[in-house]
Design a protein around this nucleic acid. Structure first.
Lengths: 203, 203
DNA sequence: TCAACTCACATGCACTGCGTATGTCAAAAT
DNA sequence: ATTTTGACATACGCAGTGCATGTGAGTTGA
């Protein structure tokens, strides 16, 4: 047990670098984060970084991948806990809005990620969040609960709306008051996807 | 007329720098654009740039401001030409989707802009696009055509959905096929904001 | 009309930061 | 035990930003 395999140590170093990067990128932004500082913070040098991730961009990709996976897992749990699949979709969207309020998510995944790595759908991670939403939509459309829209397009629109809602909330003078407004508006929007005879009683 | 005032020349140089920046930022991205190259392309040096715009970020802000104003003006014209205010709102959203397909808009306003300048609502320009959408929503809500949602939140959600739709289209394997799907999904979504007894006939 | 001044812009420099080429040393392989 | 591998450190080159300083055309006042 005192024996440390090379592979073990390397994996731990990767994890430490990613962890440090999450903090640095969140606090100073991608461009403002220095690789020297970042690596030194965990007792390494840039050598380790370029060996493990290729370049600065590769490190960001790994960080985004990790956060994205965490978000998708959380959203999926929340959606699964809902009473109906339809409520699950709404809950999922609300969960994204709330998660996107965390500075780490907002700065890294919403702002710097797309700017540096380009379009999320082409990220190596394939964007777990979008996949999750898409599968939910697939099921709801198959059951006739939603109108037969293109599920991929719908997933993008919904996620885009949710994430932009978070940006609006974060920038608003009073986020705690803005959050419920955004969620209410989101529920109305989503209602637009529902198949014809939805009960029109207020949300 | 052959007399060139200093102020005239300076304004022209500002315009030339902004124009060159639009091209450079669109082609190479904000980070990849060199201020030396950019200024040399219009026969100036970095001195002119820092004198006029303060820093690289200031130049980007000026560029974003200009493009944003152009987009808002165009969207407003399109919305005004629609038969009804409701159709105007839809046309406005579709116009944003189409405009966001242009590389210049996508790269500069949607990707680099938010990442570098931070949240759009705090840009000096105050984001003319959002203001335009917001005013349209204000009118529609006042007329009872839309549900009484928070107009600011709704504007953000709609614009966010439209702009993300554009990112999806641009990344899709066949943009010409994706565009109508995105527009159809957008119309359905917007329907969710409509006051209760909307005619449920297909869009 | 001419001198003094202003200011838009150019020039040179200092600093920071990325990426790469090369070195090193412990762990695995034979 | 020797060789080899590979994870990481070190040193360097290069590019880019921003500032401090220079300069000359255009403007102003007498």
């Amino acid at each position: 047990m005192a024996v440390r395999r090379r592979a073990e140590k390397m994996e731990e170093n990767r994890a430490r670098l990613i962890s440090a990067a999450r903090k640095a990128f969140a606090e100073k932004g991608y461009a403002g984060a220095s690789m020297d500082e970042l690596t030194a913070a965990v007792g390494l040098t840039r050598g380790a970084l370029y060996h493990n991730f290729g370049d600065k961009e590769g490190l960001l990709a790994a960080v985004v991948d990790q956060i994205d996976a965490e978000m998708a897992a959380r959203a999926q749990r929340i959606a699964a806990a809902a009473a109906t699949e339809w409520e699950g979709l709404l809950a999922e969207g609300e969960a994204y809005i709330e998660m996107a309020l965390e500075p780490e998510v907002q700065r890294i995944v919403l702002l710097d990620g797309p700017a540096v790595l380009g379009d999320p759908s082409q990220w190596p991670s394939q964007n777990a969040c979008l996949q999750t939403t898409r599968r939910t939509l697939d099921r709801l459309i198959a059951q006739g609960i939603l109108k037969p829209v293109d599920p991929e397009a719908a997933a993008w629109l919904l996620n885009g709306a949710a994430l932009n809602a978070a940006l609006w909330i974060a920038a608003s003078p009073s986020p705690p008051q803005a959050l419920p407004k955004a969620i209410e508006a989101f529920r109305h929007l989503a209602e637009g996807f529902r198949a014809e005879a939805a009960p029109a009683r207020p949300v």
